[in-house]
Design a protein around this nucleic acid. Sequence first.
DNA 1: CGTTTTTGACCCGCGC
DNA 2: GCGCGGGTCAAAAACG
Length: 519
Amino acid sequence: MFRFPVSLGGPHDNPKQPQSSDEQPHRAMMDEVDFFRSEKRDDQNIITDETKRVHVKRENSRVVDDDDRSTGINTGLNLLTAHTGSDESMVDDGLSVDMEEKRSKIENVQLREELKKAAEEIQRLKEMLSQTTNNFNSLQMQLVAVMRQQEDHHHLAMTGSKDIANKRHEGSEMVPRQFIELGLPTAEVSSEERTTVRSRSPPSLLENSSSRQRGKRLLEREESPETQSNGWGNPNKVSKHNASSSNDNVSAIDQSTAEATMRKARVSVRARSEAPTLSDGCHWRKYGQKMAKGNPCPRAYFRCTMAVGCPVRKQVQRCAEERSILITTYEGNHNHPLPPAAMYMASTTTAAASMLLSGSTMSSQDGLMNPTNLFARTMLPCSSSMATISASAPFPTITLDLTESASNVNNQTNNNPLMQFPQRSGFTELNQSGLPQMMGQALYYNQQQSKFSGLQIPTQSLNAGESVSAATAAIAANPNFAAALAAALTSIINGPNNHKNGDSNTGNNNVRTSSVERQ
DNA sequence: CGTTTTTGACCCGCGC
DNA sequence: GCGCGGGTCAAAAACG
C-alpha cells in the first residue's frame, strides 16, 4: 500500500551494494583459505598477466571446490567477479617478496579494508533505514489525514444539514493543510486550496496554543533557520524580513511554517541518570544555561551539531524533587543522516511530533478524535504513568516517564506491547537511549493501527523492531538487499548483546503480512 | 589552534 | 510601563 520512492532509490542507484554486502562473508573466508594454501600456487604460477588471470580463476575454483563442491557454480561466479583484484595483488606480492609474513600482513590489510567497506555499507544502510522510517512516518500521517477526511465526509453525510456543508468545506481544507504542514510536496493541492491554506493555516496552527502571540513570535524565530540555510543566526532580523516580504514567497513560508511547527512539538524524557546528560548518539553543543524558576538545578540548552543548521535542540534539567531524575526535552527533526543510536531518538521526536502536530492541525471540533488523543488512548491505558501528553503547554509535548522501578516496568511490559522493545533493548540503562525512539516507533504504529482498527487498542501489536523490519521487508523486493538490510536492522535494533531476537527476521514476514492485512 | 563550555547580556512575551 | 521568566546570543575561558 505504501511506496517508498526516496528510500528505494538508494540501493538501486548503487546496484553494487547489495552484491558487495552479500559477498563479504565469502570474500573473507576465501581470503583466509587462500592465505593458507598459497605456497603451492605460487610455485606453480607464471608471471605473465594472462597466466595471472588464469591462475586467479583456477585458484578460486579450487577454493570453491574444497569448501563447497556442491555449489561450485555460484560461488565461482562470485569469486570471478569480485576477487580478481585482491587475488592478483596477493599473487604479485607473493612473487615479488615470496615471504609468507608479508603476504599475511597484506592479507590483514585487505581484510581490514574489506571490513571497513562492510562497516561503511552497514552505516549507509542504517542511514537509509532512518530516512525510510521518517518517510514512512510522514506517509502514515498522510494516510491518517486522508482517512480522517473520509470519516468526516461520512459523518457529515450522515447528519446532513446546512452547517455540515461548511464543515465539509473545512474538512476538505484539512488534508491539504496537513500535507503542507508535513513539509511534503503540495502538488496535489490546487491553487485555490493553497490560497485558502495560506490565509488560514497560520492562525489555525496557533489557535490551540495558550498564547497566540507567543506562538507567533516563536514561529517567526523558527522560520529563520529553515529559510536561511545558515542556521540560527540573527533570527529577529530574518524573521522581520520574512514577515515583510511574506506575500511574495508563499510556498516558502508554508514550508518554513510547517517545519517550524514540526519543531515546536516536543518529546520529553524523564529518566534516572547520574550523568549530566542523556547520551543519545547525537553531537550536542551547549549554547546556554539558565536557572529555571522553582528548580534549584539549572536548565541547560543544547543544539545538534551533527550538521550545520540542524534545528534540533534539547533541554536538560534535573528534577527538582528528585535530583537523580534527568528530564531531557527534544525538539525538532534532524535534517541530516544519523548514526543508529541517534536515529532511535530522532525518530522518536519525528514520530511524536508528527502525531502531536497532526492532532493540533486537525479541525478543533473533534478534540478527542485527533491522533494525539489516539496516541493517548492507545498508550495511556496500557501505562498511564509511562507517557503523558500535555496539550495545555505552549508546545505540545509527549513526556515519557522512564523513572519507574524495574519491577513496575517489567510488569507493565508484560501486558504492554509498547514496552516490549525497551525491555528487550535493556533500556533500564540510561545510556541505552534506544527506548524513547523505540517507544515512538511503537507508539506511532499503534496509533496508526488503532486508527485502522476502529480506534481499538490492538491486543496483538508490533514492537518497534518488528515494525521497522516490516517496513524493511515491504521495501526490499531484492532478496539480497532484504537479507543485508535485515542483518543490519537486527544489529541496530537488538544491539550487540541481544541475539535472541534473531528470529525477528523470521518474524518479519509475519509482521508484514499482518500489517498489510490490517491495511 | 579549533572546538566546546561558560556566563552575562540581551530579546521577547506575558502578567500586573 | 515595568518587572519577570524563558530562551538565545556571543565573547571569553577552558579544553583537547
